[in-house]
Simulated assay, not measured.
Amino acid sequence: MEITTTTKCLYLVGLLLFASITAPEKAAGAGECGRIPADRMALRMAPCAAASQNARAPVSSGCCSAVQKLGKSPRCLCAVMLSDAARKAGTNPAVAITIPKRCNIAKRPIGYKCGGYTLP
Rank of each mutant, 00 (worst) to 15 (best):
G31D: 14
A66D: 09
K107Y: 04
P24E: 13
V80H: 04
A106V: 14
T118S: 13
R108P: 00
G111Y: 08
C33Q: 09
L10H: 05
D84Q: 14
K69V: 13
T4C: 08
K88F: 06
T6H: 06
S61C: 00
Y117E: 10
A19S: 15
Q53N: 10
C33E: 03
A86I: 00
R108N: 07
Y112D: 04
G31M: 09
G115N: 06
A50T: 11
G115L: 05
L43F: 07
L43A: 07
K107E: 13
I21N: 10
V80L: 01
M81S: 09
R44H: 02
K72T: 11
K107T: 12
V59C: 11
R102P: 05
Q68W: 01
I21C: 13
C33W: 02
K8D: 08
L17M: 11
G34I: 09
L17I: 13
A42I: 01
P58K: 10
S52Y: 04
E25D: 13
G111M: 12
E32Q: 14
P100R: 08
A49Q: 02
S65E: 12
C78S: 13
C48A: 10
K107C: 02
Q68F: 03
L17W: 04
R56Q: 15
P58D: 11
S65T: 14
A96K: 03
M45C: 09
C64T: 06
G34Q: 08
I105E: 04
A94H: 06
R87S: 14
A38M: 07
G14K: 07
C63Y: 03
M41P: 00
G111S: 09
V80G: 02
V67H: 01
I110D: 10
G116Q: 05
A38F: 05
T7I: 10
K8W: 04
P100D: 08
A27R: 10
A23T: 13
I3T: 12
P74L: 06
T7W: 02
R40D: 08
G115A: 03
K113Y: 01
A49M: 05
R75A: 15
G14H: 06
A51Q: 05
Q68Y: 05
C63S: 05
C64G: 00
C48G: 03
L15G: 08
T5M: 03
K69S: 14
L10G: 06
I97Y: 04
R44K: 11
T7E: 15
A27T: 11
P58Y: 04
P58F: 05
L82T: 10
S83Y: 06
N92D: 13
N92Q: 14
G71Q: 02
S73V: 05
R35D: 08
A94E: 15
P100S: 10
A19H: 08
G34R: 02
M45E: 08
K88S: 12
A55Q: 12
L15M: 14
A66T: 02
G90M: 01
L10E: 12
V67L: 00
A55R: 15
N54D: 15
I105N: 01
N92E: 12
L119D: 00
A50V: 11
L43G: 11
L15D: 10
P120F: 06
V67E: 00
